[in-house]
Design a protein around this nucleic acid. Structure first.
Length: 558
DNA sequence: AAACGAGGCGCC
DNA sequence: AAAGGGCGCCTCGTTT
């Protein structure tokens, strides 16, 4: 009899109803190394094994299971393998973007059965379901644990079969760690001071009006605008605004801010102020707070993998667009601090590291890439250096960007070759991959073929080329950010678990921590950045600095 | 009444 | 000559 070492992986299935479930240890290939074990209380069984064995938990979907576990156990789990998220990554890698990634979908594909639609991916009703089998789209006669074990083994095999398995393995681990962090962040919430928020709104808009009418300040601005333009127009209606301006002899292509700024009519300035304040009122005003802030915490729901590039999306409250103006309402609890860390110039640094371009790498070895580039290639003009580099990564060629690109092509040929190759691949309908192997979708439905007008097709191809050009950079930046998040989450747990990740947005994290741990957290942030850079980009001269401030209020972070 | 696209703007 | 990536969410105004 061989004695197995402590299992590194444990597969998890939930009972259809009630708190119980079943567990089964598997090895690194996904092969079972123990019999399935029923447990009466899944949460306590998992907590006990987490403390004793520290395995990687394998389950159908973190966003489904982990919140229910956290309701009933105090322990946060260190590691997991999220079958749904990994399935999405692998399907993308294999060219099957958009196929159902639920446990049931993966199982059906594995067994050559008809693949059920995912809930919310179109088809099903989108309502949360009481039964695990329904949630995972698994046929009623299939045992959930059997499916978890089989799909996991299949995924491990598929990961090993890709061109750079070690990178995809890292991507899957980071994506899964992100799923744990996302659930925890939604529960902890971002500290939000209703008092500060209220004072700010009152100062900007006037006192809160009763019964949902327009605040006094907006009312006055609307009246002044109507007076200045000479007609009773609704300032919220672009169509009415345009025709009103036309009647006073000002012809505008749109009512966008930059257009109004150049309009040269006194009503335009009033309208700009109205729009600025009106937006705050509607998007982040009193009604927003009542809906999204409870007990001093703003609790958005994070959607891991919600963006094809690997960036997260959010559901509810618009968490990824907290206006700068309102950041003073994000205030640490008494005796606590916010450690705010922001990756400076992340995307151009990613471009440097991925291309290995000598000149760009040299600039990215320092603290301010744009300043360095300005010195070496743009006659000291930092603004032009920045515009040029952004244009290269976004595919902009209009205006002054065109000339700047010529400079970039001459001075940084390897970097420009990378983005231009990515664009050509996209224009031809191909896919590109991030550093860790996240794959762009195919341009489905872009070329319906037939007698489509050639010019329209060309424009669509160009647009898709801009998308793949940017995907290469944006998705690799997201790889890095996710690796930072995973490393930081682990390091914060090692600090005792009291410091909490409370915000994550593309290239920025916020940790809420007892004041006495704030320096340790700041150190953990810096370590995490170094660790992620090494893991994702290996041996590179490029630095990926995370600028960190320890503050009581988000607005004070520089 | 609800659903939808367009126009617009905030964040990265 | 022109050609700018990714989101979420608000309002308007039309369609269903």
């Amino acid at each position: 009899m061989t004695k197995h070492p402590d299992p590194e992986w444990i597969a998890v299935a939930t009972d259809p109803v009630g708190p119980g479930g079943r567990l089964q240890a598997v090895d690194g290939d996904g092969t079972p190394v123990s019999a399935a074990e029923p447990v009466a209380d899944l949460a306590s069984a998992i907590a006990e094994r987490e403390a004793r064995l520290g395995p990687r938990w394998v389950w159908a979907a973190t966003d489904d299971l982990y919140p229910r576990l956290l309701d009933r156990m105090p322990v946060r789990l260190a590691r997991c393998h999220d079958l749904k998220l990994v399935e999405a990554l692998l399907l993308g890698h294999e060219g099957g973007h958009g196929q159902p990634r639920s446990l049931g979908g993966a199982w059906a594909r594995l067994r050559g059965l008809p693949v059920p639609d995912d809930p919310r991916d179109g088809g099903a009703d989108g309502q949360p379901s009481l039964f695990a089998a329904d949630r995972h789209q698994l046929p009623p006669d299939v045992d959930q644990l059997t499916a978890v074990v089989a799909v996991h083994a299949d995924q491990r095999r598929r990961i090993s079969a890709v061109e750079r398995p070690e990178r995809v393995r890292l991507l899957c681990a980071a994506e899964s760690a992100g799923a744990l962090a996302a659930v925890e962040m939604a529960r902890d919430g971002l500290p939000w001071s209703a008092a500060v928020h209220d004072a700010l709104l009152t100062e900007l808009l006037g006192p809160r009006p009763a019964g949902g009418v327009r605040p006094e300040r907006l009312e006055r601005l609307a009246a002044r605008f109507q007076e200045a333009i000479g007609r009773p127009v609704n300032p919220d209606s672009p169509a009415q605004v345009l025709s009103a301006f036309a009647r006073v002899g000002v012809s505008l292509p749109s009512t966008r801010n930059h257009v109004l700024k150049e309009a040269g009519h006194p009503a335009a300035a009033i309208l700009l102020r109205y729009k600025e304040l009106s937006r705050i009122h509607s998007a982040h005003g009193w009604a927003w707070r009542e809906q999204w802030v409870r007990e001093g915490r703003f609790r958005p729901e994070y959607v891991v993998g919600g963006v094809v590039s690997g960036r997260w999306a959010t559901r509810g409250g618009g968490a990824l667009q907290i206006p700068r103006l309102l950041r003073s309402a994000v205030v640490a609890d008494p005796g606590h601090r916010l450690v705010v860390a922001d990756a400076g110039q992340l995307e151009p640094r990613v471009l440097a590291a991925m291309s290995g371009d000598r000149g760009l790498c040299a600039a990215a070895a320092g603290g301010d890439m744009y300043a360095d580039l300005a010195r070496t290639a743009f006659d000291g003009d930092r603004g032009r250096a920045k515009i040029g580099l952004l244009a290269a990564m976004y595919g902009q060629t209009s205006g002054e960007a065109g000339q700047l690109l010529a400079v970039l092509r001459r001075r940084f040929p390897a970097a420009m070759a990378l983005v231009e190759k990515a664009a050509r691949v996209g224009e031809a309908g191909g896919v590109v991959r991030s550093r860790l192997g996240r794959t762009s979708p195919r341009p489905a439905d872009l070329w319906p073929g037939g007698d489509e007008e050639a010019e329209g097709t060309l424009r669509a191809a160009r647009a898709w080329g801009r998308f793949t050009r940017n995907f290469t950079i944006q998705a690799s930046a997201a790889d890095w950010a996710l690796a930072v998040l995973a490393a930081l989450r682990r390091r914060l747990a090692a600090l005792g678990g009291e410091p909490r990740l409370v915000f994550f947005q593309h290239d920025e994290v916020i940790v809420h921590t007892p004041v006495e741990l704030s320096e340790a957290v700041a150190a953990a942030v810096a370590e995490s950045a170094r660790e992620a850079s090494r893991l994702v980009f290996g041996d590179t001269p490029v630095r990926f600095p995370l600028e960190t401030s320890v503050v009581e209020c988000y607005a004070d972070a520089k």
